[in-house]
Simulated scan of single mutants.
Amino acid sequence: MIEPRNRVVQLRRYGGPDELEVVDAPLPTAGPGEVRVRVLASGIEYTDTLIRRHLYPQTASRRPPLVMGYDLIGEIDQLGAGVTGFRLGEHVADMTVLGSNVEYRTLQASDLTQVPEGLDAAEAATLVLSWMTAYQLLHRAAQVRRAQRVLVHGAAGAVGQALLVLGGIAGLELWGGAHARHADLIRELGATPIDYQREDFTRVLPGGFDVVFDGIGEDGYRRSFAALKPGGLLCAYGYSAGVQGQRRMLTMLMWIARLYLWRWLPGGRRAFFYSINAMRLRHPTWFIEDLQRLLAMLASGAIRPRVTERISLDDVAEAHRRLETGGLDGKLVLCPDLPSRRNRH
């Protein structure tokens, strides 16, 4: 009898997209307190490219080979001993950081969020990291209030789009920074576009913004901090400018550390760095509550995430290249059941 196998996206060594390969691995078995899921969809994240390049602090101590994949929507196909509250065939969501770009994997039942029936798995997968980051930045970190004036950097990206949509629902007055080609998209999402190449965002709003969300880190967040009004708040959550500028991880960690020193400067402005993993560790129930809320919004039609393309396991390396090139107006989502592009004709 042939032993069932599991195809997984493995990182051979830290480096470029060519270090990713699809390999066969043993089919996992659910242990006590675990479930095994057949993966229906897994987001391909910009964060995955940082992990691949050894620029992500949470995985910096890990040594390849590693199985990639930050999040997933899966269908339970095996229940481990002692698991209650879940059933075979049920769809669930989880954030794993590693190990979700696979056909099958095991998960701790206590970490799972149940997914309402009938939801598109690829759309639901966009919520686990990108939309959750946006929701928690708005409502857990910044605790925004209606009518506040808010600037979103990288507004055309996955988290940026989610910030604009959820910020609009929260009644915020929004500005979105991006390249000029994305101006129509940003207007469609309810914000005033700011063209990075032609406009100085520090001068757009006399008096300054109540809140700035910055996942880019241009100039080590200095200009974002300068764009705040007295008493305003800078929520940093990424450093893509440092990555593109090939800065060392230590340099970017120093940028983050400096944020906390700025609160001692005159003007009462504050800054801090949001990490979805740190917040989940401190408040695990928040993660499930917030994801349930987002899934309910998706089910009701209140939000509709943009899925640019559904891709196969064999096309993950190309997806990483596209993420690093930029210019996408939605999410790339891995669907393991999908055949590779070369086998679709």
Rank of each mutant, 00 (worst) to 15 (best):
G190C: 04
G207A: 11
D111S: 15
L261W: 06
R223F: 06
E318N: 04
W264M: 06
L11M: 10
Q148N: 09
L55I: 07
A25S: 13
V35F: 04
M132G: 00
L338R: 15
F287A: 11
W131D: 00
T126I: 02
A191N: 08
A299F: 11
Q108P: 03
R344D: 04
G157E: 10
L313T: 00
R149A: 13
R341M: 07
F209A: 11
R247K: 15
H283V: 03
T47F: 04
P284D: 13
Y221R: 03
G171K: 08
A60L: 14
L253M: 15
L228T: 03
L323N: 00
P28W: 00
A141H: 11
K229M: 13
K229E: 12
V83E: 08
A142L: 06
R223K: 14
A302H: 13
L323Y: 00
Q161L: 07
G267Y: 04
P305F: 07
V159D: 06
T251P: 03
Y274M: 04
C235A: 15
S110K: 09
R280A: 13
L295M: 08
G160A: 09
Q161V: 05
R145N: 12
G215R: 06
L129N: 08
V23A: 12
R222N: 07
A156D: 07
P206L: 12
T96R: 09
R38Y: 01
I44V: 15
V211A: 10
L234H: 10
L265K: 12
L127Q: 01
P336V: 04
G232E: 08
L88V: 06
Y260M: 01
R36K: 14
A109H: 02
A142S: 08
A156S: 15
G238S: 10
V128T: 09
I51F: 01
V212D: 05
A227G: 09
L98E: 00
V144D: 11
S100R: 00
G232S: 12
R198A: 15
A141N: 11
E218R: 14
F225E: 03
R187L: 10
L66G: 02
L55R: 14
A60P: 06
T285L: 13
T192K: 15
V152I: 14
L20C: 00
D195Q: 10
V67H: 00
W175T: 01
L66I: 07
T113I: 11
L332H: 05
P64G: 12
N343Y: 13
G33Q: 05
D48I: 03
D210H: 15
W264N: 12
E324H: 02
P4R: 10
V243Q: 12
P17T: 05
L127V: 02
G31A: 12
H320V: 02
G168K: 12
L164C: 10
H179E: 03
L294N: 02
H283K: 13
